[in-house]
Each structure stands twice: as C-alpha cells, then as structure tokens.
C-alpha cells in the first residue's frame, strides 16, 4: 500500500520539480550571468567537468549586474510602472462593466441562470488570440467602429484607436470580463433575499438597500474578481503586442523583446525575476483574503 502511495506521489512530484522548480532556478541563475556574443549567449557556463574548482569559479562569476542595469535604465522602471497603471485602470473598468452584468444574472429567474452562465463562459473557452484579433478589425482606422461613428455623424474624422493604450484597455476588459463576472455572480447568488425584504420593510429604497446590503455582501466576490483580473494582466503579452502601439509599455512585451529580438537572455531573466517579485504582493494579498473568507464561512 505504502509503496503504491509513494509511487503515486513521486511521479507528479518529480515532474513538477523537474519542469517547474528547476527551470525557475535556472532563470534566477541566468539573471546573475553576463551577456556574451556567443552560443549560448551568456557566461559563466555551468559544467561539472572541472570538479569542485569549476563550481567555485562558476559561483564567483555570478553577480547582480543585470539588476543594477535594470535599476539604472529608465525604460524598465517606466515599463513596470506603466504595467501597474494599465492593470489598475483596466481592473477598475472591468469591475464597473462586470458588476451590473453579474447583478443582472443574479436577479434573473433561477431557471434562466444556467443559460446566462453558459453565455458568459462560452467566450472564455474560445481562443484568446482570436478574441483579441476580432478587435483589430473593429478598432482600426477603417474599422467597424469608425465606420459606424462616421455613419451616425458623431465624428467626421476617423479616430485612431488601434495601436494606442485605449485599444489595450478595451482588449483587456473584453477578455478578462468573465473572470470578474463569475466570482461576483457567485457571491450575489448566495445573498439572502429576506435581507433585502427586511430593508424594504424598514423603509430603505432600492438604492439604499443596494449600497447598504447587496454591495457589502458581495465584497468577497469583488475582491476575488479584481485579483483574478489584475494578476494576469500585469504579465500580459498578447494584448499589448497586438492592440498596443509604440508608446504602450508593458513588462511582458519588454521581456519578449529582450529575449527574442535582442537575444539578451540574462537581462530577460532579470526582468522575469523582478516581475515575479512584483506579482508576489497581490498574490499574497489575494491568498490572505481568500483565507479570511473561508474562515468567515465556517
């Protein structure tokens, strides 16, 4: 029994160690290496052939040069800050658009709810790339949005939306909307209607009972939804690279460029390590709030 149990544990455990933890250690090591115009494009190169002395030499050649480079170069600071700004603004918009939808779903007749849920989930299954691509045709100079606005006479010159930050915001709100709606809907659905009835009996009007009861009781869903949008958006690559323009700075695209265009692996690795450190804060906050929520429910 025990042997089988350990075999059961050992297979996925060693898989994750080998393909998740070890690669990550390699990234950290790479971020401490120096860039070299060679194949592979970095030094020092780890080998066991020179014995102990080789290992000592290897560690003595590692340094924090790349991190100093990141700290001194304005570009990286700006990219980290602008990723934070984009993630914050787009999370706010996703919340403002997602909440009324979740609220509407929770207020719908119970027999309709599974269907409404399906309508929200279905786009989530379709390709992310295709959903972003769909917006390219809408937002471009001669795209559908401009055609429509020109036709209605609201504007007389086509607007430039594609390849600006506005397009990035639209893309993020569009693709991450289900992540916001589902947790909010889950918390609204659990809400006890008798509380709202009691509030009405006690003289609250609709908006008072919304702000005094519905909103506070859906706080857990709002927090979860905001984190579920904010965390992945920070490291987003596809949306800024397809919808964003030259002035869209996001850390995901910077990392990609460092790696593929500049072939600077050590700097790309340092960018990755800093991004991960940056992500630790919201992730830890999120775990704490989930824990609190779980304790409150028990």
């Amino acid at each position: 029994m025990n042997f089988r149990k350990y075999l059961f544990i050992l297979v996925p455990y060693s898989w994750l160690l080998l393909l998740f933890l070890v690669p990550f250690i390699i990234v950290v090591k790479m971020s401490l290496s120096d860039t070299e115009m060679a194949i592979p494009p970095y030094t020092p190169y780890f080998t066991l052939s020179q014995g102990w002395q080789g290992i000592v030499d290897f560690f003595s050649q590692l340094d924090f040069e790349n991190y100093i480079f990141l700290a001194e170069d304005n570009l990286y600071w700006k990219a980290y800050l602008s990723s934070l700004k984009i993630a914050l603004i787009s999370t706010t918009f996703t919340l403002l658009i997602g909440y009324p939808i979740a609220y509407g779903m929770a207020n719908a007749a119970p027999e309709w709810r599974p269907t409404l849920m399906m309508i929200i989930i279905l786009p989530f299954w379709t390709s992310f790339l295709i959903r972003i691509y769909a917006w390219m045709g809408i937002l471009s100079q001669e795209g559908f949005l401009n055609q429509f606005l020109l036709w209605t006479g609201i504007i007389d010159q086509p607007l430039t939306i594609l390849n600006t930050n506005i397009a990035v915001y639209i893309g993020i709100v569009y693709t991450y909307l289900p992540f916001m709606i589902l947790p909010i809907y889950a918390s609204l659905e659990k809400l006890d209607i008798s509380l709202l009835e009691a509030a009405k009996d006690l003289g609250c009007n609709r908006s008072q009972s919304f702000w005094l009861i519905t909103m506070p009781l859906s706080k857990a869903g709002i927090i979860a939804g905001c984190f579920l949008v904010f965390i992945p958006v920070l490291g987003e690559f596809v949306i800024p690279s397809l919808l964003g323009g030259a002035d869209t700075l996001m850390i995901g695209t910077i990392l990609w460029q460092e790696f593929f265009a500049n072939r600077d692996w050590p700097v790309a690795s340092a960018v990755a390590v800093v991004l991960l450190l940056l992500l630790m804060i919201p992730i830890i906050l999120f775990q704490r709030s989930e824990q609190k929520q779980r304790e409150a429910e028990q």
């Binding site: 998740f20 390699i26 790479m30």
Partner: peptide, 25 residues
C-alpha cells in the same frame, strides 16, 4: 508540492515559457 501546483496558475506565461526554454537548452 501544493505551492508548485498553484504557482503555474498565477505565473505569467512569458516567465513559464522563458524558464522552460532555458531548461530545454
């Protein structure tokens, strides 16, 4: 083990991709 299960869910794809590539190389 449990943190290795949850980490890939929040890890940005660019970092997962980069780390695996460096491993393969």
């Amino acid at each position: 083990f449990s943190s290795m299960i949850y980490a890939p869910l929040v890890m940005p794809e660019v970092i997962t991709g980069l780390s695996l590539l460096l491993l393969f190389i």
